[in-house]
Design a protein around this nucleic acid. Structure first.
Lengths: 126, 126
DNA sequence: GTCATATTCAACCATCTGGTTGACGATTGC
DNA sequence: GCAATCGTCAACCAGATGGTTGAATATGAC
């Protein structure tokens, strides 16, 4: 079963869970390590990880007594596609944009580098 | 105040609200008309519209005794940017992509029109 | 003014959510 | 075997959420 938009968006609606996802962007982590920076019980984090797993946003694999958590960024795809359906806002990833330009068109023009005025507020307000 | 990712994602987590947003993509609507296709009370729809307004996803303007609901797609921007932070999936809005190309670079090359192979599954699975 | 329409408000209810604590099962190290 | 570590489970709690109904407000039509 592919997780519903309901569960994906609901999973993303909690700041703790978004923070966890960003931590996992760096590297896979054990449950205990995920919990370390948060001021809440291990059981609470375990529940959050359950929600993320249920939404398909992460996968968990037990090796020995340690359970490793791994990001599954593909799960965001459905949600992203849905949102882009509203596409009346300009695309956001201008870096990828320009990479796309370069790749697809092999520009030869003397392009002075445009200043990237996109808001890259990804880091704060998780 | 700019609505938090919390409220935006939470607003998107409900199928009724996502369906409302898609209806408003077509046209602005009065509250009563928004409620019409749903099998729930007008008061419930009014609450949903309150959630969407609170998340900044729609705006409401009262003209006479009718309150018009209007989509505000800019509100999805923050959420979209956040999700793109995980950017390991390809960008989706290729139409906007190509429009961007045209606008920014004023191509003069004999561009044969590329076929749009993007998945526009916006309508189903709201 | 009176009646109908458009929308919200208030109270209520059931269920979900996010947290706690304490007990428990599984695994590792000695 | 025994103790420590890793993680979940179960029970509980407060507050949020999504729905209901009935009354109230505001505007428009006649």
């Amino acid at each position: 079963m592919t997780p519903s938009l309901d569960t994906v968006f609901a999973a993303l609606a909690d700041p703790t869970r978004r923070a966890i996802l960003q931590m996992l962007l760096e590297d896979d982590m054990a449950v205990t390590d995920v919990a370390e920076p948060f001021e809440m019980s291990l059981a609470a984090i375990s529940k959050h990880l359950g929600v993320l797993t249920n939404a398909g946003l992460i996968t968990q694999e037990k090796r020995g007594r340690v359970k490793w958590c791994k990001l599954d960024p593909d799960a965001l795809k459905g949600a992203s596609v849905w949102m882009q359906g509203f596409g009346q806002f300009e695309p956001v990833n201008l870096d990828a944009f320009e990479a796309f330009l370069e790749r697809e068109l092999s520009l030869e023009q003397t392009g002075e580098t445009k200043d990237n005025d996109h808001d890259d507020n990804q880091a704060d307000d998780v």
